[in-house]
Simulated scan of single mutants.
Amino acid sequence: MFSTLEADIRPGSGLGVFELGSSLWNVLDMLRHMQHAFPLVDVKFDPDSSVTPVILHIRPHLDLLFSGQHQRLHTICLRKLRDPNPPVTLRFKETILSSTDEVFRRVGVSRTFGPTYPGDDLRYPGVLFSFEEDSRNDGLKGASAHTEDKMQEVKRVVVTQKSVNDEANDVLDEVAECPAMTGDIKKVILKVHDGVDLYFYPSDTEPVRVRLGVTSAQDLTCDLGSPLRIHYKEDDRMAIHSRCSTEDEDADTDYFYNYLQHGIDFLIDGTAHVVKKIVVHTNVPGSPLFQRYKRCPWEIEGRPEDDEDESPPRVRFFDPVDTISHFLSPREQPPTMLLDRTDEDDGLTLPGSKTRLLGFDGIILEATESTQVVSVVLF
């Protein structure tokens, strides 16, 4: 016996447990803890793009579309209202629109939401009701438009942000700032040999500055809260490449502060307890680290042209690795090593498991075979 899927419509805001503007990382984490309610979830994306829109198909009723750059919930589509596996109860405020006993029809939309512009779909700010089973037919409607039968059954409900001047939201647009983003990172500015500036939502929040060799573990806790995980550094395989044999003598006492919810790791010196390295993660779909960290929207800042330059050049997380490499080292190619993150997990096989490590002065890029940078290390 399937439990009923309870879904309340909040035009321009969300549907059921899903809020527009939520991050892909948060939503997948929530679904992982709600497998009893959502047992079947498919993740769809373009493997050749780091800024691919991601679709979560939660069978059989829900499709969630996330924006390509910032991986924010852009559109919620509820389908197959009459499919009983599980049954759906759809509400708006205190009104039941659809249930096992109530068929949702065109006349019900009009009675609940009021008049709107003529057309096959009924559009209101932040919500659309369609009488077609599949959106792929939308482009053909002009040739064979439905008569506006009051008893037409609603087949799809689509929730999006409220648009300006009632214009339709482009599915490739980014999500506008909204309450669901509060406390999340808006952008991170990486400065080689210096540290990072963390900018948060709301946009008027003062940035948090973390400096290599200066910011302490206590500072991080005060500014960012307690990390989700703390673990001691155990992987010293890179020490063999060190020019100084004594560099990692005390590495056994170093430890990581893992802010998975921000997509950032901080390596803390075990003796001085100050930040020693900073790692930011891009959360590229299909990569071995996908969904371990939320996407960190990082930007690497170059040197300003002069003291009065208020907008120094930058490269961003969605730029190809060759572009970023040239930005960091215009004259020569950096040394490169290969890494396979699936070597330590016998049960994990991925078509693109190997990544390249590109080393520069003070910074390391980790990139996939399809030129997507999956992480950056500052040291």
Rank of each mutant, 00 (worst) to 15 (best):
F360D: 14
K162V: 10
F360W: 09
E6W: 10
G195R: 03
F113K: 05
I189K: 06
K187Q: 05
H57Q: 15
L62F: 12
R211V: 00
E299Y: 06
L5F: 02
D248W: 15
D173H: 01
F256V: 11
K276M: 06
D223V: 07
D63F: 04
S144P: 15
R10T: 13
R303I: 08
V175G: 07
L24Y: 04
D248Y: 15
P86Q: 04
T182S: 03
P285D: 01
S226P: 02
E102T: 13
E133A: 15
N137Y: 12
F379G: 05
L357F: 09
I76P: 09
G108D: 03
I76E: 10
G68Q: 12
E366Q: 10
L365S: 00
V107W: 09
P39H: 07
A143V: 07
P304H: 00
V43H: 07
K141T: 12
E344W: 12
E102F: 00
E148Y: 04
I230Y: 00
Q161I: 11
S216K: 04
V157N: 04
K354M: 14
D346Q: 11
D219P: 05
Q161P: 11
D322K: 09
E206I: 14
Q35A: 10
D29Q: 14
A180N: 00
P11R: 07
S22Y: 06
P304N: 00
D166W: 06
K162P: 10
D121M: 09
S353L: 01
K233M: 13
P313M: 04
Y259L: 00
D197H: 06
T4A: 13
L358D: 11
P39E: 02
V279D: 01
A367G: 00
T271Y: 07
N85L: 03
F104L: 07
G108L: 03
S50A: 15
G68M: 11
K80Q: 15
Q161C: 11
G139N: 01
P335A: 09
P313W: 06
D345T: 10
V374A: 00
I363W: 09
P334H: 09
D83M: 10
N137L: 15
D149C: 14
S98N: 15
V374H: 00
A143W: 07
V17F: 13
D8M: 12
M238K: 08
V208D: 15
H61S: 05
R10L: 09
P84M: 06
L128H: 03
M181I: 05
H146N: 07
G114Q: 01
D46V: 11
F379C: 12
M1I: 10
D63P: 01
Y117V: 10
R314P: 05
T215Y: 15
A143N: 13
T116S: 09
C222R: 10
S311W: 06
V275S: 04
E177H: 11
I268E: 06
L15M: 10
G16A: 07
F2P: 11
M238I: 03
V280C: 02
T368A: 04
F129I: 15
G183V: 06
P125N: 06
L81Q: 12
F92M: 04
F92Q: 02
I364T: 08
S287D: 01
V158A: 06
F18Q: 06
T112H: 02
R59E: 09
Q71S: 13
L81C: 08
